[in-house]
Simulated scan of single mutants.
Amino acid sequence: MNRQVVSAIALAVAALSAGQVLAQDAAPKTREQVRAELLQAQRNGDIIVNAETGQTARDMFPDLYPQSASVAGKTRDQVKAELAEAIRTGDIVADGETGQKLNEQAPHRYAATAVAQGKTRAEVKAELAEAIRNGDLVANTETGTTYREMFPGRYPAASTLAQGKTREQVKAELAEARRTGDIVADGDSGKKLNELYPNRFRAN
């Protein structure tokens, strides 16, 4: 027991003396330098927010912080312009505890960011219809298998799919498929209408 206590005391003294030696080698920092380092660490997400795991704010909330703290090759003017833009749009972390940005805390103070225009409803519906026709929809979400892969005989081969059809051609093909029941009706089995209801559709 005495040996353990003496070892612990010796270890503590060694650690304290090593810390003092290292502190003497480093130049003392001013209060402003320490504050600047703290603010920089908060901006970059380098502050430890979970003492148990040692995770930094950047580790826990990677979307809220820039990918790299400093980008090599940028001029001072470029950095100042980026900072001015971030201040203008509120894209600066305001709350170090939650990682919220200014534009998230007070969205009414900042203009909404432009969202990239997606596809129209008609375009999405057309893509869905084509995916159904070609068997490109996922049939089994666990394996990612498509209907074409599960039932290759029911869909045209990928290499024979027509490219660049006009709207009229597509509408004519859809009308013909409806008339003949050549449309997948049961997503689970992949059966077409003319297979489920053979009496409703006449064979050509």
Rank of each mutant, 00 (worst) to 15 (best):
R88M: 02
V71H: 03
K29P: 02
A81Q: 10
A36D: 06
F61P: 01
E85G: 06
S68R: 09
T56L: 05
D91C: 05
G90W: 01
Y65D: 06
G90K: 02
E32L: 02
A36G: 02
R35K: 03
A69R: 13
E52S: 10
T75H: 05
M60S: 14
K74C: 14
A72D: 15
Q55G: 00
E85N: 12
G73I: 10
R76H: 13
M60K: 14
A86L: 02
D91I: 03
A69T: 15
A51V: 14
G73P: 08
I92G: 04
V34R: 11
L64S: 15
A81N: 05
A84D: 06
L39P: 00
A36M: 02
N44W: 04
M60L: 15
T89D: 13
K80G: 02
R43N: 09
A81W: 05
E32H: 00
A69G: 15
R35H: 01
G73A: 11
A36H: 03
A86Q: 10
S70H: 09
R76M: 13
A41N: 12
A41D: 14
Q67R: 15
P62F: 02
E52D: 13
Q55A: 11
R43M: 09
A41K: 07
Q78N: 09
A57Y: 04
A72W: 07
E32W: 00
Y65A: 06
E52G: 13
Q33S: 06
T30C: 00
V34H: 06
G90L: 04
A57R: 11
G54A: 10
I48F: 12
N50H: 08
